[in-house]
Design a protein around this nucleic acid. Sequence first.
RNA 1: CGGAGCGUAGCGCAGCCUGGUAGCGCGCUUGGUUUGGGACCAAGAUGUCGGAGGUUCGAAUCCUCUCGCUCCGACCA
Length: 576
Amino acid sequence: MRYSQYFLPTLKETPADAEVISHQLMLRAGMIRKVAAGIYSYLPFGLRSVRKMEQIIREEMNRAGAIECLMPMANPAELWQESGRWEKYGKELLRFKDRKSADFCMGPTHEEVITDIVRNTVNSYRQLPLNLYQIQTKFRDEIRPRFGLMRGREFIMKDAYSFDLDDAGADLSYSKMYQAYRNIFNRCGLKYRSVEADSGAIGGSFSHEFMVLAESGEDAIVSCDSCEYAANVEKAELIYHELETPAATLELQQVDTPGQKTIEEVVEFLKLSPQQLVKTLIVQTSADEVLAVLLRGDRELNVIKLANLLDVDWVLMAEDDVVKQATGAPTGFAGPIGLKIRVIGDAEVQGMADFVVGGNAADVHFTGANQDRDFKVSQFADLRQAVAGDPCPRCENGKFESWRGIEVGHIFKLGVKYSEAMNATVLDAQGKAQPLVMGCYGIGAGRSVAAAIEQNHDENGMILPMPLAPFQVLVTMLNPKDDEVREAAETLYQQLLALNVEVLLDDRDERPGIKFKDADLIGIPLRVTVGARNLKEGNVELKARNSGTTSMVSLGDITPQLQQLISEALAFELGN
RNA sequence: CGGAGCGUAGCGCAGCCUGGUAGCGCGCUUGGUUUGGGACCAAGAUGUCGGAGGUUCGAAUCCUCUCGCUCCGACCA
């Protein structure tokens, strides 16, 4: 491709509404342009990267035995009503009517459509296992789209669905996908972790997320420093010990704490540490219960653990008026003493004595509070968010390390949730109808590219890993008006094209500075500079974008050297 | 949906408080000089000041409504 003929509109300045680096660089490097909030056009340069991601996904999915298909974006309401998600999915589901006023939605995911296909075509266990996937544009009307391609409303995703006769088969399908995902992200050259995750609204029994490690990631994850355990903090288990409650040594004493609502304020006011406080959170559940949860002052509640414990769909922090009604005090002064509602404690609280709690009245706290003596807790459980330093639940000596991650892939074992709702069954060997056991597996293609940039950039621009780079080599023709320079660069360009090297020739009539700045910005892995100065010695300059190392290479050696570097950068080993 | 902020040329911004008919830098066009890290000189083009309504002799500026965008939170494969 000749730059002069290409469409690569770079920006010198960072657009004001881009916050994270990948969004800024993708705009500046002419990869994407915004059309509306969370909705982007892919310009040619960006599309090349996304297509590469898709191709890697496709190859590894195919290798794992999955079969590509393509489902429609427009989904009729009936399928969604049948699964129950027409109601459940809420406003995130973009709905519209056709000319006959029939209800439709834009597919945010395709369990319904694929299950409909399979139930109508697969009747026998002999046709299993089956894994169908597509790479397609999804639409989710996110409450708050942000960060460019990181959280868009419309985005390109690979979604795969596996169908098996039984649990064992489904587990095998799942593990094949797990391995395929490892292959995919290994091939992309990304630093990532696969972590145990909560299965959330999609449902199902277990799931893993694939997290690209980056400071800007929206998810917090923990991993053990000595074994393989890694999990989203939403999911991360903590070892649950029955702790012996120490004997009380202090009398319960009421203290005035005027205006001291937050833990920080109370700690400061009473000259204590947060570990000597027990905070009382008032929560509401989808089952319409209001209850109190006790946590050590410096801990965070994990609402997913609580929802799972209570077996409810969701748990929310109670509104101020609900808190007032439950405790008789404004928010900030809740405490367990004298509460009429159910009180549940985080496991850690069981091992505490002589602590500070809210007084259930404005501007009042209690010191020297003790469980059993002053109030009763109906149940203890693992309810808090894991943090760095917590002991690993799976091994003896491990401690958690914490990371930020960008969720680029998520795999779920769904079980029979959709097949039962939509009556998708096959006959087993005994001639008995069995609901299909399903799995579903997603990868965000655009988000993966954004995550790669998030992880690989410097102050001058992006540093794309070779497998995702739009072009492999940039040949910079320094002065197109110099016949020798032009001819040498043209010859090299033609040679590389003939060898199927993906090469961009910067033949623009621009000053060198502009060409170098653009080269750094767009981050093509290998840059060959053809200029009069080095050409006198029969040399060109080779610069690696990632390391910044430069070397002089003779015209005769440059092509094989480039080929060598490219094949090294694309080499991958299938995981074990 | 709660909180905050922003909409003025393709991009980045000033002007608004104190109303008087729109400006700066980059980019773009033309000519010339330059050419190994975002050149220089000269001459140009580009705006329904997000939209609607109101106040006023007069509105980018003041008021009301509305739309869009960004950030924080809640939410979320």
